[in-house]
């Protein structure tokens, strides 16, 4: 017997329901533009990584990340790029990298860490690498950073 009443969409009968999209400002960019931006950033990140500039690579990819509905391609590409940067950083360099990130980028990085932990085995996602970054990022940005990653409805 299916007793999970939570599967019933009770909001369907509410004329004045509060929609998810009303809780944040939509991305002003067109979906196509978002994908183009993500591809351009992925290329820029490869250039930065080739020069050994991890901070620059992270700042680039974490700036203005794709959020909202119907842009899964851009979201996946961005997550893949973030994971590539995270995997290619030596664990001894992580504390300095997170310290040099702007505060906005720190909050965005935390969102990607949690997104990656929610997708074990997806692409190159490695749980131990994400946990290492999570520990160092929390030491710098505090639990407030985690709270912001959980509160923000602009899901990456």
């Amino acid at each position: 017997m299916d007793i999970n009443f939570r599967k019933i969409d009770v909001d369907a009968y509410d004329e004045d329901v509060l929609l998810e999209t009303e809780l944040y400002d939509p991305d002003p960019r067109e979906p196509l533009q978002v994908v183009e931006d993500a591809k351009a950033k992925a290329a820029a990140v490869r250039t930065s990584l080739a020069k050994g500039d991890t901070v620059g690579a992270l700042v680039t990819i974490l700036d203005n990340p794709p959020y909202g509905p119907n842009i899964d391609e851009a979201k996946n590409l961005t997550l893949q790029t973030v994971v590539t940067v995270l995997n290619s950083t030596k664990s001894t360099d992580i504390p300095n990298v997170v310290k040099l990130l702007p505060v906005e980028a720190q909050d965005t990085l935390m969102k990607y860490l949690y997104k990656g932990m929610g997708l074990p085995g997806w692409g190159d996602v490695s749980g131990s690498v994400l946990l290492g970054w999570h520990e160092k990022l929390t030491e710098v940005a505090g639990t407030g950073c985690i709270v912001r990653a959980m509160t923000d409805r602009r899901l990456v």
């Binding site: 505060v103 909050d107 940005a141 505090g142 639990t143 407030g144 950073c145 709270v147 912001r148 509160t151 923000d152």
Partner: peptide
């Protein structure tokens, strides 16, 4: 609830948001 305090001056409007590292 995002661990911030915001102060608004309505002229601009200018909003200053202070992010806390805590709860």
């Amino acid at each position: 609830h995002d661990s911030t305090i915001s102060v608004v001056y309505p002229g601009g409007p200018t909003i200053y948001t202070i992010r806390s590292t805590s709860l």
